[in-house]
Amino acid sequence: MEIRVSATRMQLLATRKRLVMAERGHKLLKDKLDELMKHFLGLIRAEYELREEVEAALARALPAFLEARATMSREAMEGALLVSRAQSKIEATSRNIMSVKVPELTWVIGEAQDVYPYGFFGTSAALDDAVEGLTEIVPKLVELAEVEKSIELLADELEKTRRRVNALEYVVIPNLEETARYIVMKLDEVERGNLTRLMKVKEIVRKKRA
């Protein structure tokens, strides 16, 4: 690579200073990367287990609604579900993982004392069961969404940090080292040139005296 610096002692000192800084930054970022990775892997594992659990549970709960629909008229079912007074809300706060803000979500259902949001008339027990089954799963579902979102956000930060570490390690630091070496060589060259010139001058002076 082409090096565009003037080969002076000042430049050499500045370059060495930058090199020290880059190395320190590299070490810090690498530590950050390791720590991020640790959290990330933990989340991935948690996600894997949660998803297994949720998918199995949903595979039981969702068909229950179809069964319930089979035991009563479509209108009655839709009516029952439509008049639902329940209100699913999500409470969100945020948590800090290595300066990445990830959400913490909790499922809140309004009118909690009334799990079955409809009257008894015209609805079947199967529907009650189906609603209950789903109600049990939803907190897990919300947790799964939270974990997956955290993974997304951490993945982004991980990628950015990894890029920075690599840029420092493979581009910035080698370049600075190269520059420092170049300046040292240039300075040495000038020094040698100076020396020979001095020797020449001395010889001329001595010849004149003689």
Partner: peptide
């Protein structure tokens, strides 16, 4: 915040009951 479910009729049916 609110909760949303997007999907085909049969699958999202149950979520309606949860508001």
């Amino acid at each position: 915040y609110k909760m949303a479910v997007v999907g085909e009729e049969e699958a999202v049916l149950g979520f309606r009951s949860l508001g």
